[in-house]
Design a protein around this nucleic acid. Structure first.
Lengths: 238, 238
DNA sequence: CGAACCATTGACCATGATCAATGATTGTGG
DNA sequence: CCACAATCATTGATCATGGTCAATGGTTCG
């Protein structure tokens, strides 16, 4: 529900080599990305900063990236978290609207926008991939407005946890286990809350047996149905 | 600042006929839209509903349109208001993400998406127009998150008034006069406030001589500088 | 091991929601 | 055209949610 290019799920693009021999012409953007060399970023390294003009299209292979914007008053609004498979930088504004920073160690591939533009003129399919990405991202961002603007702190948190869980690369065994690579500050800056409120409401969710927090950065979903109710704003009381 | 395709200002597209004799090939989307017949909508008529699959690209010629989404609890989140010159429906999702409804009497031109798709294959310029629109809209929507998520009611209102004023078709004489075609409920549903809070904070702005409200739907900006400070969140006190 | 950072919890306060009453504006039928 | 109804807007009183300030406890890393 929260902003991300969901359509770029693992299954929707070939991670391996492009089978160029079979159909050499219609290479997709995902194909081309897969041919690019990998690059590594340490935690806190930036892919780009707000206002930068140089730009690439990136696809995250491993790790976690946050997109954020610094406000006048010094606070930070995190726009979205990006997971493996997610593409970023597909918009064509003159300058980057926000900054992108590695949260964990990150592996990614990138494609200079110039190259992308050249390919767009040759391959219409390439173009529609970008339009799809942008459309999806727009819908996700609008949806985020609804959550952030209308829901209580505990509902925001419920929605956030659900979203993380759905997007997280699943460990097959531990079905409802979630490894939070994020700090409470990250969560707060995304949801527009303070760390105290995040902490208090995590405690509430724990007291109500909806989640458990065996360690600070490990979260277990105990009652998925109730979490979904909360996230959808369908809980009248408490 | 609040979400709209600003780039589609009046000056950026030819309202008259396309000068086809001079350059018959590279017709822009705006050119093609200008060749479409006009259609009229009465207040409260819908362009489309959330979930609709049929879709066109619309350009508003006159009047005001609101994009909104109904929430589970019956409340309404207005995603954005669209003014003359604004284009909507340029995304390519299977279904409409939200509903579009005429607020005032509206005149618009539309282009079936099928036609648009055909043209996109012939004209790369057409495509980049759409990508530009989407990119801009995405940036605006993200910016909206920041305002809605982090600002006090009075700051939200200040930002909203400024945005309306900047986008409104200017009446040359009355420089700082603003005709609110909207109800307080519209404003509240956009900013994520109640109508009472909107009303109270309009009164505050009036008491501080920042605006005046000679009639309920007429607003005059008295102190633009202070309004901008408020909107930017640069006012420490009050 | 200690320092820096992160997280939790508590007490208090401010902002905005809710409930309620009154005024203003708009629209409709006599 | 007026009267009445319906809708919309303003204002007040009260309350709840979440922010701020502060203290304590846990983690992590050099």
């Amino acid at each position: 529900m929260l902003a991300v290019a969901e359509m770029t799920s693992h299954s929707s693009f070939p991670v391996g080599r492009n089978p160029a021999s079979q159909r050499p012409q219609p290479a997709t953007m995902q194909d081309i990305l897969s041919q690019q060399p990998q690059r590594r970023l340490a935690p806190h390294e930036h892919l780009f900063h707000e206002g930068d003009r140089e730009s690439n299209i990136y696809r995250i292979e491993r790790g976690l990236v946050r997109l954020y914007k610094l406000l006048n008053d010094g606070r930070r609004q995190i726009i979205s978290f990006r997971f493996p498979g997610d593409v970023l930088g597909s918009d064509t504004l003159k300058e980057h609207y926000c900054s992108a920073e590695a949260v964990t160690e990150v592996t990614l591939r990138s494609l200079p926008r110039e190259t992308a533009h050249r390919r767009m003129k040759e391959e219409p399919g390439f173009t529609s991939e970008i339009i799809e990405l942008l459309s999806q991202e727009l819908a996700n961002t609008r949806s985020q407005i609804t959550v952030l603007n209308r829901r209580s702190a505990i509902e925001k948190l419920a929605a956030f946890i659900l979203d993380l869980w759905r997007r997280q690369p699943k460990q097959p065994g531990a079905a409802k286990l979630l490894t939070l690579e994020l700090t409470r500050t990250d969560i707060a800056d995304f949801l527009g809350l303070t760390i105290e409120t995040v902490s208090r409401n995590l405690t509430k969710l724990r007291q109500r047996r909806i989640i458990n927090l065996p360690q600070v950065h490990t979260l277990v979903i105990l009652d998925l149905a109730r979490l979904e109710e909360l996230a959808a704003g369908e809980c009248e009381d408490w």
